[in-house]
Amino acid sequence: MSPTVLWAEIRRVLQLARSYWLEYVSDFCLYTVGFLLLLVIFRAASDTFGPEGYLSSLIGYVTWKIAASAMADIADIAALESRTGTLEQLFLTGRGPGLVFLGRSLSLLLNYGVRGLLLGAVLAALLNVLPPLTLLAVVVFVLTVVGACGRGFGLAGVVLVYKQAGGSINLIWQMMVFFTGALAPLTHPVLAITAKVLPLGWGITSLRAILFNGATVTTLWRGGELPGLLLNTAFYVILGAGLFAWGERRARSLGVLAHY
């Protein structure tokens, strides 16, 4: 990864943030209020839902918000920039589309990471809960996000060829909040298996095990969470890279890299 590309992307994101500040503020307010409303519903549904439940949901919610937003945006920018024509200009820089998209993904992660952590910090303060952050938790979080970005790359590859697929991306990422166990651990066997297949499921389970049960690398490995997370992340990264390369080549063959 070229630092030049990464720095150019970070600067671009910061410059764009000035133009989109109102959207960022409204997004922040919406997701803060939205999460608090969900907690009200959960508490109304279960008398035992208390501070530990808040923290468990908050961990899943923030992970989902950062990882799934970045995943959806990686795919979304492929569709958007294809329409605006900037995707072609990016390809014309000669940097290699994969590299430019990687830089774009990292800058998106930085953007969503800062916004997501700010959201998490404010919610934690409002709920008076404190997630005990450890190095292992950070590593698990990063692996989770990388897996989600891999999936984003794959979706971006598909969107390069099938532009209309872009419309379903928002639906996919919104659905992930329910099917990955982000808000509450999934107990139904079918849903539990679904969560393990999707990019965020293993990561959120592992994070909860670390933060609530003090799980270590050894216990996570023996419990299957860590191998599951590593396999899941590797699967989505390889699949994403493959689909992106396929999508790029196919789009160039069909002449649909740009779709004005």
Binding site: R12, Q15, L16, S19, Y20, T84, G85, T86, E88, Q89, L92, A258, Y260
Partner: peptide
Amino acid sequence: ARNIYWRLS
């Protein structure tokens, strides 16, 4: 005028 970011200067 495509191929540029309209939100950037």
